[in-house]
Nucleic acid binder design. Structure first.
Length: 285
DNA sequence: ACAGGATCCTGGGGGC
DNA sequence: TGCCCCCAGGATCCTG
């Protein structure tokens, strides 16, 4: 389930491989993808070449010539790799872009929760994400903005972290991990946050994402990097997927609840809820 | 405004 | 062995 660190890893892997490559053909079209745009993919893409590969939130941004952009969202099971042409047949291949060096960029997505968008020069990228309501990058969050966005909401912290309009790129794994690092209970409401707690959460989000990037992300199930390598951060997760294991700080068993429609892992003892106590913890006020 | 559920989608795993 | 059911969760939509 790729979140920001996994997407960043893929972007870094693909960047040198796609640099200046020209598109010579499109041999698999994303027609089975959900929300697939009914455009002429071959006519739009063939002849264009890569300028840069970047990332915005969980989106992979391919900057192409003629000011066009190919945006790819991996959803939950998306994989993006460059392979040699004529390899083994691959299941769930939804986009195959042939390159001028005998290789191809393959977008595979078993569950089709991902998305592919093509933007022409007229559909400027500069305004696209703003219009989509995507929030700031986690490493560029203004502390005043952060406190205001959180503190003006009655929603719980888990839901706020998952909201891509507040901060882009955080998913279920790193939301739980950031809350653990900040010692804040996921059920705590934004409006209950004190400024210092909001700030420690902001820093925890930055820190956990940075740590995960340095380990090439977490491979829980399907994720592989752009070079086919698995991530290494799954071994550093402190609460996600560790239900019942002793908390690394206080040895209380890690709890799992359903929150904001997602499985949510936390330590009931050392993640404080400012009075909002989920499972009989004695912490907080 | 917010919570919660349903939806999309498939493969893996547990239980029987 | 085989079958059924549940689970995973990114984003979006709908309802209460």
């Amino acid at each position: 389930m790729p979140e920001l660190p996994e997407v960043e890893t893929i972007v870094r892997d693909l960047r040198p491989v796609l640099k200046r490559r020209k598109i010579t053909g499109v041999s698999r079209l994303p027609t089975k993808m959900r929300r697939a745009e009914p455009i002429d993919w071959t006519g739009s893409l063939v002849g264009l070449s890569w300028k840069r590969v970047t990332r915005r939130g969980k989106w992979i941004v391919n900057e192409l010539s003629a000011d066009c952009h190919l945006l790819i969202h991996l959803g939950m099971t998306g994989q993006l790799q460059v392979q040699k042409m004529g390899g083994n047949e691959i299941d769930h291949l939804h986009l195959q872009i042939e390159l001028d060096n005998g290789k191809c960029l393959q977008f595979r997505d078993v569950r089709r929760f991902g998305a592919v968008r093509f933007l022409t020069a007229e559909q400027a990228l500069a305004t696209y994400f703003d219009e989509e309501g995507l929030g700031p990058e986690p490493f560029q969050v203004d502390p005043a903005y952060w406190f205001k966005r959180l503190n003006s909401s009655q929603r719980n912290l888990k839901a706020l972290l998952l909201d891509q309009g507040i901060v882009a790129g955080v998913g279920n794994i790193y939301a739980d991990e950031a809350l653990f690092r900040a010692r804040l209970a996921p059920v705590l409401r934004g409006c209950d946050l004190k400024p210092a707690q909001a700030e420690s959460l902001r820093l925890a989000v930055e820190e956990v994402l940075q740590d995960a990037i340095s380990k090439r992300g977490s491979t829980i199930r399907d994720y592989i990097g752009g070079s086919g390598l698995k991530g290494g951060f799954q071994n550093n997760l402190r609460v996600y997927g560790r239900t019942g294991d002793p908390c690394v700080r206080c040895s209380m068993p890690v709890a799992k609840i359903d929150l904001a429609g997602r499985s949510t892992h936390f330590c009931p003892r050392c993640q404080v809820g400012n009075g909002r106590q989920p499972l009989g913890s004695k912490e907080g006020r």
